[in-house]
Amino acid sequence: MKILIVDDFSTMRRIIKNLLRDLGFTNTAEADDGTSALPMLQSGNFDFLVTDWNMPGMTGIDLLRAVRADERLKHMPVLMVTAEAKRDQIIEAAQAGVNGYVVKPFTAQVLKEKIEKIFERVNG
C-alpha cells in the first residue's frame, strides 16, 4: 500500500505520515501541492491519496478533479484532510468524487476511522 500525502505545511505532512505509520502504512511519499503531486501520482503506482484543500499552485479540490479525470487514476481512493469547513465545500468535494473528508484539527482516531471505512468500501 503506497500512499501520497499532499499538504503545503511540512509539519502537517509529518503528523499525517506518523499517524499513518502507527496504522501500519509505512510506504508513504509527500508533495507540497497539486502541481507537484499530479506527476508523482501519474508515474508512481500510488494506491491512496491524502490531500489538503488550501494550497498554493494547484489546490486539493483541483487535484481531486484532475485525478478523477485521469483514466488510470480515476478509481484511486482520495481522503481530504483540510481546515475548509463550509457546507458548500464539503458538498463540492463529494460531487467531485472524494472518498472521505476530515476537518482539521482532527484526532488520530478520526483519521483511522475514515481510512478504515474507505478501504472497507473499496475492498467490499
Binding site: W53, T59, E84, K86, R87
Partner: peptide, 19 residues
C-alpha cells in the same frame, strides 16, 4: 464557493459552516 477560507474560528456562529 471553491474559494478556500482556511480554518473557521467562529464556526458556531455561522450556518454555512460545519462545527
Amino acid at each position: 464557493p471553491t474559494q478556500a477560507e482556511g480554518p473557521q474560528i467562529a464556526a458556531d456562529k455561522r450556518d454555512d459552516v460545519v462545527s
